[in-house]
Design a protein around this nucleic acid. Structure first.
Length: 316
DNA sequence: AAATGGTACAACCGCCTAGTG
DNA sequence: TCACTAGGCGGTTGTACCATT
């Protein structure tokens, strides 16, 4: 028997999030930290279901999310990890810092699957066989490899963590395989850590300000319009139907966000990448250890397997 | 310029699992 | 042990944008 949907209530809003909602959610999380999603809609006044709030946070608003083009390296990693782990996007995402599982999944479905298909039909023999190779790995072998992966990731991470790290980062990322060390289980985070989600929004909003709504592809027009309306109305506090914070608060939020972002821009970006590392349940390995190390590991493994003849990682 | 098809991505849906009483 | 629930995950859908005809 199936569970009733968590959000089958009437009056729960669906569809694209507006900047107003984003700000309400972010400011709430900045204050209280993520977790206990069930109470978020009631406490924020958002007409969204808890799941939607969580999703919006994890896929879009949370700190440290990198959006846009995937690099060639990331692409390779995704291909390799997908071959290794299958469609376990969350697991794959844990190896790719700054990328969400949803992002990776989308990228796989829209880009990589086709790309591989093309390659597969192009060079039927080599790639095709290797691509389907993992499907034929005996379960025991697959599990052993997964274990090895986890061991190696743990080791690499603990090595990388041995030097001092910013407190924000060391709080909850101490164990990459410990997915239970989620936000809710950590102490209330320092605002600095969450501030970078405000940075995300600020960046977003700044983009909207810079680009006319039409030119921006990354945000839905609903959101753009909503934001434009808000900007238009924000100055004279005319947006009256906003739930939660009133329009004065909202415009103040915008101002503070812009100020915040400006101050970020003026400071050292390297420093930023450290001090604003995502406080996240997903291990931010790329920021913890050099990305090249992780890649080296993956590529070495692939090379090693080619040698041994495992035959499931012959892409590169 | 309009119509059409393809692409990209945010968001939703429903199942699964772990935690809790 | 069982029932219930929140959170997590992967699959799928909806829709705006872009390119082509």
């Amino acid at each position: 028997m199936g569970r009733p949907p968590c959000c089958d209530k009437e009056g729960v809003k669906k569809g694209p999030w507006t900047p107003e909602e984003d700000i309400i959610l972010v400011s709430y999380i900045q204050e209280h930290g993520p977790g206990n999603w069930r109470t978020v809609p009631t406490k924020t006044g958002l007409s969204r279901c808890s799941k939607s709030c969580r999703l919006r946070w994890t896929n879009y608003l949370r700190p440290g999310i990198k959006r846009g083009n995937f690099t060639e390296q990331e692409e390779k990693m995704i291909i390799h990890l997908q071959d290794l782990l299958g469609n376990r996007w969350a697991a794959i995402a844990s190896y790719l810092p700054q990328r969400t599982d949803n992002d990776i999944k989308n990228y796989w479905n829209t880009h990589l699957r086709k790309k591989l298909k093309k390659l597969q039909t192009g060079s039927e023999g080599s790639l095709g066989d290797s691509f389907s190779g993992s499907r034929q790995i005996p379960r025991g072998q697959w599990e052993r490899r997964l274990q090895t992966d986890i061991q190696m990731a743990k080791r690499a991470l603990s090595e990388a963590l041995s030097p001092e790290k910013p407190s924000c980062l060391s709080g909850s990322n101490s164990n990459p395989s410990d997915s239970s060390s989620s936000f809710s289980s950590t102490k209330p985070p320092q605002s600095l850590c969450y501030a970078s989600s405000a940075e995300n929004i600020a960046r977003m909003l700044k983009g909207w300000m810079k680009n006319p709504p039409k030119s921006s592809r990354t945000n839905s027009s609903v959101t753009q319009n909503s934001f434009n309306n808000l900007v238009a109305a924000g100055a004279d506090t005319a947006s009256s139907d906003a739930k939660g914070p009133n329009s004065v608060e909202l415009s103040e939020s915008f101002e503070s966000l812009f100020e915040f972002h400006q101050s970020l821009e003026s400071s050292n970006s390297d420093e930023l990448s450290q001090s604003f590392s995502p406080e996240e349940n997903k291990p931010d390995i790329g920021e913890i250890m050099p990305f090249s190390l992780l890649e080296k590991w993956l590529l070495d493994e692939a090379a090693c397997q080619e040698k041994v003849g495992c035959g499931d990682a012959k892409f590169f």
